[in-house]
Amino acid sequence: MEHSVRLPLARRLGRRTYLTLCGAGFAFLIAPIVVIVPLSFNAEPYFTFTEGMLRLDPDAWSLRWYEAILDPENGWSAALANSLVIGVAATAIATVLGTTAALGLASDAMPFRRLAMGLLLSPMVTPIIIVGVGAFFFYSSLGLAQTHLGLILAHAALGAPFVVITVTATLAGFDRTLLRAAASLGAGPITAFRRVQLPLIAPGVASGALFAFAASFDEVVIVLFMGGLEQRTIPRQMWSGIREQISPTLLAVATLLIVFAVVVLVTVEWLRRRSE
C-alpha cells in the first residue's frame, strides 16, 4: 500500500491487537451457540463432532433427536403447552398493567415518580432464588402453589418491568400535541388514546410484550420451587435434562430455542426501528 499513509508500527500493532481481542470476544459470545446447532444433528448419541460428521458423511447426520422431541413420552410437547399457556397469560397481564403504568410514569405530573419507578423495576434485579423461595411460601399459603394461576401471577410480576421500560422509552418520543389536536377535534381522552396514541406507541408495547414473554418462557427457578408435575415448562424440562442425564434431544430443543431467540430478536429490532 504505497499510496496510503502508513501508520507507525506501534499503532498498527496496537490496532491489530485491539481487533484480535475484539474478535476473540465476539467468538466467545457466539461460538457456544453456533457449536450446539450442528451437534444436534449428530446421528450418534455423543456431544462431540464424530469423524463422519467432519467428513460430511450424510449417514453421520440425522434428525433423530428432533423426532424424539415429538414423541409425547419425552414430555416436550406437554412442556411446550405449559410454557405457552403460562407465558401468554403472564404477558397479557404484564402488558396491560405495564402499559397503563407507563402512561402514568411518563407524565410529568406523576407523584412519587422515582419511588414508583424503583418499586416497579425491582423484580428485574431481585435475585431469582429469593423470588422463587418467597413465591413458594406465599403462594402455598394461598393454595396457589402447583397451579398455573400461581405461576402466571409470579411471571407477570417478572415481565411487567420490561413493558414499563420499553413503553416509557417510547412515550418519551411521543408528541403530546397530537393528543391536544385530537381533543380539539372532539375526541374524549379514551378515544384519543385508542385512536391516536396507542397506534403510535404500539411498536414499543409489542416489544415490551415480547420481552415479558421471553422472561416467562425462559424462567426456571420459580417453576422449580412452585410448580408441580402438571406445570413442567420447557426450561423446567431442560433443567432436569441437564441435571440428570444430558441427552442429545436437549441439543435439538436448544437449537429450536436458538431459532426462537433469533426470531424474537429480529422482531424486536424491527419494532424498534418502526418506533424510532
Binding site: P32, I33, D218, P235, M238, A254, L257, L265, V268
Partner: peptide, 10 residues
Amino acid sequence: WTSLLVRTTA
C-alpha cells in the same frame, strides 16, 4: 436473547 439454559447446555 438465547435461553439461559441453552447457553448453559452449550
